[in-house]
Amino acid sequence: MKALAIEGLEKGFGGVRAVDGISFSVEEGETVGIIGPNGAGKTTVFNLITGFYRPDRGKILFYDKNIAHLPPHKLPRLGIARTFQNLRLFGKLTVFENVLSAVLVRGGYNLLSAVFRSTDYFVTESKAEEKARKLIEFFNLTGKEDQAAENLPYGEQRRLELARALALEPKLLLVDEPGAGMNPIEIQGLVQTMNEVKRRFSLTIVIIEHQMGLVMNISDKIVVMDFGEKIAEGTPEQVKKDKKVIEAYLGEEPL
């Protein structure tokens, strides 16, 4: 069963074709890594899938449903969650509120229940709070619930963003450069966390990453992009040996 299928996706900004007719698919339960040099169009692909950009051409099929023109806020309801390349937490909100907000987006009481404090309000709130606490515990953030998110160290902010994304109970998780700005030890921790996430939540994951150690370790399949096009696709082993890939990365970090 294909969880995600991208077909002939195109997006241009002015004269630049950021994504130029790319196609690939992701099986349910699979973890796919997208790699490529800076400016290859990887994040643009994410922004297209999550509705922040509208594609010029092409289809995005999520379990056979075309989602190419949906506004961003509709996608979490369908089961797609994402994290952002340069972290987008609600900085002034507490750690707990960051996760709770995502839990409460999915279903809840209406305005009248909130105003008049109906039973529905109390039941939903306490269930949501418990779920948020569990997620915070899973991501090792217990004890920091009441801190403002912006005051957390960088690595914990990354984990919090993951916790918030998983609070949406997604079927498909899009992770944009989780390892950016991390040192090798932190990266190891991240690999561990990602593997635990895969085990615990039955998820399909697409991950953009520069840190080869990370992406080669956790991906079942790699898609390589350059200049908005797909230049290679295959298992990590196959991709490492691919001529075009080596060429594209010449002068960049070695594989």
């Binding site: 922040f52 506004p71 806020h73 987008r88 909100l93 907000s101 409460l104 809840g108 949406l168």
Partner: peptide, 22 residues
């Protein structure tokens, strides 16, 4: 309530709010 929480999310970061489905 969740509505007040979403309002504060919007104030903090509109794109992230859309990203979690608000």
């Amino acid at each position: 309530s969740r509505f007040g929480l979403f309002w504060r999310c919007v104030k903090n970061d509109e794109l992230a709010s859309q990203g979690i489905g608000i």
